[in-house]
């Protein structure tokens, strides 16, 4: 697990109040929403805000696939890395 992935997992746990969970309990390729981790659309909205705030990145609202970045921790880490590099 990279530092960024670890940081994103901790952010998910803190921002969404997931008790009894540690970064190791979230698989990097585990589906975050719906089944999988069992998060809902409000969590997705919150996480979108938290990611933008923590990493100083912007979700491009005119791109058709913005929510694909939120599929799992790997895709979120890739999104944050790409935004930071841009």
């Amino acid at each position: 697990m990279s530092d960024l992935q670890h940081e994103i997992k901790q952010l998910i746990i803190d921002a969404l109040g997931l008790e009894d969970m540690g970064p190791d309990d979230i698989g990097s390729d585990q589906t975050l929403f719906g089944e999988g981790l069992g998060l809902d659309s409000v969590d997705a909205l919150e996480l979108g805000l938290a990611i933008q705030k923590r990493f100083g990145v912007k979700i491009d609202a005119d791109s058709k696939d913005t929510r694909k970045h939120f599929a799992n921790v790997n895709s979120l880490a890739a999104f944050v890395s790409a935004q930071r590099a841009a």
Binding site: S41, A44, L45, G48, I59, A61, D62, S63, K64, T66, R67
Partner: peptide, 8 residues
């Protein structure tokens, strides 16, 4: 449900 989709 998402703001980005509402905007699109």
């Amino acid at each position: 449900p998402f703001p980005e989709d509402i905007q699109l």
